[in-house]
């Protein structure tokens, strides 16, 4: 992160600290549906989308923030600043983007930005008050990226809610996600279709002790 990036981070930190609001982070591996969930939340409560989504990995390459989101459920209210983060990965290969139809220059630029995005996501871990980890429930949950993200949050004593996303797909297996992380609450949802989203909002209250 350059000088401007550091300044921006400090500025945003100071802004949040002043308001004393909860910073709710959305973390996970690429293409788990983090931005789709962020969009669902902001559409439901602000009436606007947060970021663009794509079947090509690493669509979100910068930290995205939406402030002052108030979720209401059964006479309860929860206000937070939503932080959508770039997907965390251990490898980024520009040639994979070319295979998916990108021009070489664009693919290389996307790969470069994606590496910076991963670095930023890791840096921002310390700033979160609570985190929703979004996992693709059609994929193997035992990946080292998932274990590392959750292990880091545990070490920092940051409350974690695991979302097993994409339950609308046939290959989805919530039980496998639950078995992989038995000590955490796991909510199965489809951020795209909106399945079980009310249970997700209820879980946010528990996550933030509201």
């Amino acid at each position: 992160m350059g000088l401007f990036g550091n300044f921006l981070k400090k500025f945003l930190k100071a802004l949040f600290a002043k308001k004393g609001q909860i910073k709710l982070g959305i973390y996970g591996p690429p293409n788990g549906g983090k931005t789709t969930l962020a969009n669902k939340i902001t559409m439901d409560w602000l009436g606007e989308e947060m970021g663009s989504v794509s079947p090509i990995a690493h669509e979100t390459r910068e930290i995205q923030i939406k402030e002052q989101i108030t979720v209401k459920s059964k006479n309860k209210e929860l206000t937070f600043n939503l932080v959508d983060t770039p997907g965390i990965a251990t490898k980024i290969d520009y040639e994979e983007f070319i295979k998916q139809g990108m021009e070489e220059k664009e693919a290389k630029s996307r790969a470069k930005e994606a590496t910076k995005g991963v670095i930023d996501s890791i840096k921002w871990l310390d700033d979160m008050d609570a985190v929703v980890v979004v996992l693709d429930s059609t994929k193997d949950p035992y990946s080292q990226v998932n274990i590392t993200i959750i292990g880091n949050l545990e070490a920092r004593k940051i409350p974690v809610l695991i979302v097993a996303n994409k339950i609308d797909l046939k290959k989805s297996d919530i039980k496998k996600v639950q078995a992989a992380f038995p000590q955490y609450d796991v909510i199965g949802i489809s951020a795209k279709v909106g399945t079980n989203i009310d249970a997700f909002y209820e879980a946010l209250f528990k996550l933030t002790n509201r």
Binding site: K91, I122, L125, V145, T148, N152, E154
Partner: peptide, 23 residues
């Protein structure tokens, strides 16, 4: 876990056209 996240971070810093990252 903090060493693993640091390993990922350092890996990202070193990625270029030849080095694609780690498993």
């Amino acid at each position: 876990s903090n060493e693993k996240s640091e390993l990922i971070r350092k890996t990202m810093e070193e990625i270029d056209e030849r080095f694609k990252g780690i498993e």
